[in-house]
Design a protein around this nucleic acid. Structure first.
Lengths: 336, 336
DNA sequence: TTGTAAGCGTTATCAC
DNA sequence: GTGATAACGCTTACAA
């Protein structure tokens, strides 16, 4: 049975109030008292019960990080940075994965029975903007969106400029002399979401270069997985004319795509150049190493935590739209 | 302000006791009452406050998963399975990373001020056995060890047979005709830990094949990262005689090692065969695809959660030692 | 500066 | 079967 505040007070011959003051670092407590209390705490090996504290204060000191899949490298690398950033602000992180399940996302936003266990949600969503707006009850739970573009300023969010990032990647392929540039990751069904923005950037870059968007060149990829990339690229390799470059909406797709190109008896970058987005470590060690658009994940994580903490402290602060920097990283997979 | 049990009781004209009974699905509630309460809950959009419930029951419904680094693929794939398995048992998972910091591990096991936020710990440790034994106060917090061998039965743990797994990997290299077999991942400083067991398996397999353990062939790798693998393999490639095979203690090391072999102007598997342990998805898409010892992560996750839940329900249950199955998966990186 | 006591929202122990 | 009521361990007015 762990010791309670009361036990400490009894042993130290002081009131619980004084013990509480000492524990929470309250200023006005005499040195004599403080020492006596500290000694009692030490002797009883007392630790404050965070649950009781939470019930009283309404703060749990926990953030929820909600991602589609934690084992997708981009998300696990993001999670790592979020956990570190949260620690700096005195928060811990609970991770939930929605598994590409819109219903699970919905329940989380509506506030299921355990929502109150954390002070705020960092949410990397699948759902479209309009759905989000309708679903979330911002009154009840601070929310920061990750990697999602939002226009009406109702939510905090931190994301890269997805249109520009896609544009940079495709323009790089153009500059490398590629003319038949395909894309993997376009999601025709979603609105206002990352895939749509990246598709827009892809098309804008093509147009800018005076290249046509050929039929069948923009392919979908439901889960942004290696397997999705593999299958999409396999289909692309069978096209006539065959693409001489593939822009993948994520590095994971690109890893799968590269493997598909090899299995089709072709080579990267000679026959087909490949570029991704995310800059996961896997791409740096791949063969050939993967050109990509690097996102500043530590920055994204830090900003997201900073925003959520600000909103927890004052729910009425205006929503902020943080644009994280990105930059093109050229490696072997797009060498001319 | 969210509605409370009291609000519901007032609106439904019943006692809080009755409302609580309805909410927690208590049997003896008349249908009339139940309907009235349900209507009031619906109207007020009531959700039970999990913190208050926790204070009363002592259960938070949360498990902590502690790993060195969440963005190491093996751990993120494990985390995914743990989260899923925990959900089946009605638990959620908080993830903490120790960042290879023994001090952070120690604090966690000693029970820092927020330990009471979860009902049990699933711990994938760095520290040695003896340290663990001294540090953890099992009376206070149910604990299940992952991936660590333990002999004295004081802790639940689930792990593969590390000696045998390493033996299988090395024997496979021997069967493929390799005679100069190096290893990456040996950690001379740790006792009773995974690296030591895998080193033992490596040496046993060599001896069995009548091969000598050459000086400099067993190299350390502090973090089991791609970079560690790269550096170790680079050093190995400069050795005379040069190894014709490398057994890596993790797939991530193997990925780095393969890249180092290429950068040394050699090829896998022709000049150097490479085999890892873990069977992360990255290895299946690598070029060449990586031979490995596949661990049944869903099994490990499920067993670990099953054990921790059993221990939460009854702290006095005897510790169990679960051995998870493993199997050799031969791919391109060790083709003869 | 320190003590007393009233909650925070549940669950559980009593009675009825 | 249902209603009061006392905890759970803490923070914080309010007193002293």
């Amino acid at each position: 049975m762990p010791a309670t505040l009361r036990d400490v007070a009894e042993l130290a011959q002081v009131s619980v109030r004084t013990v509480s003051n000492v524990v929470s670092g309250y200023a006005h407590v005499s040195e004599r008292m403080r020492q006596r209390v500290l000694a009692a705490i030490e002797e009883l090996d007392y630790r404050a019960n965070p649950v009781a504290r939470t019930l009283r204060t309404g703060r749990t000191g926990m953030l929820a990080l909600v991602v589609p899949e934690i084992d997708v490298p981009y998300f696990s690398e993001l999670a790592r940075d979020v956990i570190d950033a949260a620690a700096e602000f005195g928060y811990r992180v609970m991770i939930d994965q929605t598994g590409h399940d819109h219903e699970r996302e919905r329940r989380l936003l509506m506030g299921d029975d355990r929502t109150m266990l954390f002070d705020g949600i960092l949410f990397s969503p699948l759902v479209t903007k309009s759905e989000l707006l309708d679903m979330h009850r911002s009154e009840h739970m601070p929310l920061v969106l990750l990697g999602e573009h939002e226009f009406d300023g109702r939510f905090d969010h931190v994301a890269i400029d997805n249109v520009q990032a896609a544009r940079d990647a495709v323009s790089h392929l153009v500059a490398a002399g590629r003319t038949r540039i395909a894309a993997i990751g376009a999601q025709p069904l979603e609105e206002y979401s990352t895939p749509l923005l990246r598709t827009a950037g892809y098309e804008a870059a093509l147009e800018e270069a005076g290249l046509q968007a050929r039929p069948g060149y923009a392919t979908p990829a439901p889960h942004y997985s290696r397997t999705d990339g593999y299958e999409a690229a396999t289909a692309l390799m069978a096209l006539d004319p065959r693409p001489d470059a593939i822009f993948c909406f994520s590095d994971l797709l690109a890893v799968g795509a590269m493997r598909a190109v090899f299995d089709a008896g072709l080579s990267v970058p000679e026959d087909v150049a490949v570029v991704g987005i995310d800059d996961i470590e896997e791409g740096r060690f791949a063969r050939p190493s993967l050109s990509t658009v690097s996102l500043d994940t530590p920055f994204i994580a830090r900003e997201a935590v900073r925003r959520i903490v600000a909103r927890i402290d004052d729910p009425s602060v205006a929503a902020e739209e943080v644009v994280a920097p990105h930059r093109l990283v050229v490696r072997e997979s797009t060498a001319s």
